[in-house]
């Protein structure tokens, strides 16, 4: 499916789920997301990450509702527990099958997002791996001069912010040196398709979810 439509679908369904408590709908969404992720060959390691990273938060929500709310409502506790996982798996359906480049290009081409915004975000995103390397280097540079920068040290973050500012200038230079002008039209070399089929799928999925959410209960 087209990356932008995928984003909107995930956003709309997440919003609906967060407004309407329905355990069965949550479980169905998690189940469908899992199938989708399996089709796209998500690795076991990634799957375990998706399950265990939010687990503590999910358990905390469950305990708060079941033991400490006046009603001690078990169904509602499970609903909120599963809601968190619904968000996680829906999000994963988007992020595991779409790269930042595809999404920002799609938003630019299909949804006519201003290019300045699309490429500014993407460029910043491409800086992320550099930031990882940078933090390691700053850490080593400190140790070389007897300054131990622990992960909570303000100086480490001060340096990282300074680097980020210098990169922001650098990205601006880079974009301009390669012909980018804010107001100028651009051509499309790698088109991102937005077909009738994409729209049909988007609308069908969205419509078919409504009765599940509003009329199907355990």
């Amino acid at each position: 499916m087209n990356p932008s439509l995928k984003l909107f679908l995930v956003l709309i369904i997440s919003l609906e789920v967060s407004l309407k408590a329905n355990l069965l709908a949550n479980l169905i969404l998690i189940f469908i997301s899992l199938i989708y992720l399996f089709i796209h060959r998500v690795s076991l390691k990634e799957l375990l990450g998706l399950i265990f990273v939010p687990l503590i938060a999910a358990i905390a929500i469950f305990i708060a509702i079941y033991y400490y709310s006046p009603a001690h409502d078990l169904i509602y506790a499970w609903t909120l527990f599963s809601r968190l996982y619904t968000f996680v798996f829906l999000g994963a359906c988007l992020t595991k099958t779409t790269t930042a480049t595809q999404l920002s290009r799609s938003l630019e081409q299909n949804m006519h997002l201003p290019t300045k915004f699309a490429y500014g975000t993407l460029a910043a995103f491409n800086v992320l791996p550099k930031i990882g390397q940078e933090v390691k280097r700053i850490h080593a540079a400190g140790q070389m001069r007897a300054m131990n920068l622990s992960f909570y040290s303000p100086r480490l973050y001060f340096k990282a912010i300074l680097s980020a500012i210098s990169w922001a200038d650098g990205l601006n230079d880079a974009m301009q040196a390669h012909g980018f002008r804010e107001t100028q039209a651009r051509s499309i070399i790698d088109p991102i398709a937005l077909t009738k089929k994409d729209w049909l799928l988007f609308i069908l999925l969205l419509i078919s979810f409504q009765p599940i959410l509003f009329f199907l209960y355990i």
Binding site: H178, F180, Q184, A185, R186, S187, I188, I189, D190, P191
Partner: peptide, 13 residues
């Protein structure tokens, strides 16, 4: 990077 640059210059695919 090359695609980005050539799109800026409005070159066809």
């Amino acid at each position: 990077e090359l695609v980005f640059t050539l799109e800026n210059l409005q070159i066809s695919r």
